[in-house]
Design a protein around this nucleic acid. Sequence first.
DNA 1: CGTACCGTTGAGCAGGCTCAACCGCTGTGG
DNA 2: CCACAGCGGTTGAGCCTGCTCAACGGTACG
Lengths: 249, 249
Amino acid sequence: MSVPAHWNGRRHAVSAPNHELSLKATPFGLASTRRVVHLLSTPDRLRLHGVATRLRLPAGKTVYREASTADWLFLVADGVVKTVRALPSGKRRVMSFVFPGDIFGLAECGRYVNSAQTVTPVALYRIRLDQLMDMLRYDASLELQFLTKVTHELREAQRHTIVLSRRDAVGRLAMFLYMLDERERPPNGGSHIQIPMSRSDTASFLGLSLDAVTRAARRLEQSGLVAFDGTHIARILNRRRFEALASAV
Amino acid sequence: MSVPAHWNGRRHAVSAPNHELSLKATPFGLASTRRVVHLLSTPDRLRLHGVATRLRLPAGKTVYREASTADWLFLVADGVVKTVRALPSGKRRVMSFVFPGDIFGLAECGRYVNSAQTVTPVALYRIRLDQLMDMLRYDASLELQFLTKVTHELREAQRHTIVLSRRDAVGRLAMFLYMLDERERPPNGGSHIQIPMSRSDTASFLGLSLDAVTRAARRLEQSGLVAFDGTHIARILNRRRFEALASAV
DNA sequence: CGTACCGTTGAGCAGGCTCAACCGCTGTGG
DNA sequence: CCACAGCGGTTGAGCCTGCTCAACGGTACG
């Protein structure tokens, strides 16, 4: 697996790399805006730090394989990871993209349900599952933060199903870009969208063929909504129409 | 909303109604088979009983509405509930079907993210969210069971996305029937599949038009894999070929 | 310079959607 | 008791669009 060279280039050094161990999610409780917040309290973060080991991986590395015994839970500090499921037919589907502040590696019956691969160079924390379980057994407040986080991922998965329920490729791609944009909006404020993943990963995530994604991108350009600057950067030209399209499910 | 009369008939009185308060999920930890187990320990169940109120609802009732303030968490004891999301375009999508042993009503920022409607007559337990939160804060073991449950729902949502990523209607329907069958297999052992929901709910869940579901059902019959006895019962005629189709993603 | 991989573009096909008519069951009102 | 409307479901005809297959281009790497 070759690592694309552009990851070392300047194009992706948008914001200072984040090396914090953190969990981001929308909380259960009342909040004025539906904003993502950092869940971990300082003592909880320190306690997690105590049992977590930090590791860096280049792009394109397999973190773990589907159906292997699940010894670790992973937290993303920086970079992007994808979880992939192999289907009986031999095809592979990208089930989710995992961003800083997300977790991955939730086990089912002691085994990972998906494979995980790095999309960009990443900084991860990993925690032994048995150690984490011990901590959760005694720290209900920490556990609540994981409960919140998993619930958040459940909602993300539901949004994914909504994207897939759309028929038109352009609409799916627009929703995808919109999700990417939402995630990064506040820091850079501009209309640039970083697209860390390859076209084929995007296609697999959106349930489209590679061709369809390309064509959809082209049509977004032709209609003047979005401009693409290479494979990994998009720029929103007409936000009003773009958002109308993205939410026109 | 009219309640179909067949719900009172004999066709659906397959197994004795379940009135237990229970949580079913596949656990994190090692297990030989990927089986769903009952999570709640007896003390935990009793404690939940203490704060839960039981209610019965007929089919076709709205339990709560999307975006209303979320005061309760619901557990299904008997019957089937669907969660529905209204899309900006005005269309509605069935996001999930909720069966006995499942929970629904997880809030985001104090509001429900979907609407919930009963599909059949149901027996529910509901728990005030603030009371539940108080309990979880002091009972890490109970909380772990909820964490396990939500994780289980996350995996179900991912299976849903896999179904939606299929292109062919027949395949989607087969996977759907397979999921229904899996859930009920052990009790009756036979090849009858109960389909509690209407064709249109099935269609909406599968991201298909009503017509497509009908046609897919017809093609399943024509190819001799499944026989339909009305809208709510299917019978598997050739299990080997049926499962091959269902897993031929 | 050749190889390999990712991405783009084009032509033709297939399968699901739309629209519309029709059926069967239910509940209602004369 | 029957006529009717309403709803969920089935079926048919034609369109639309994303998939398949294939060839080509661009970039990284040996």
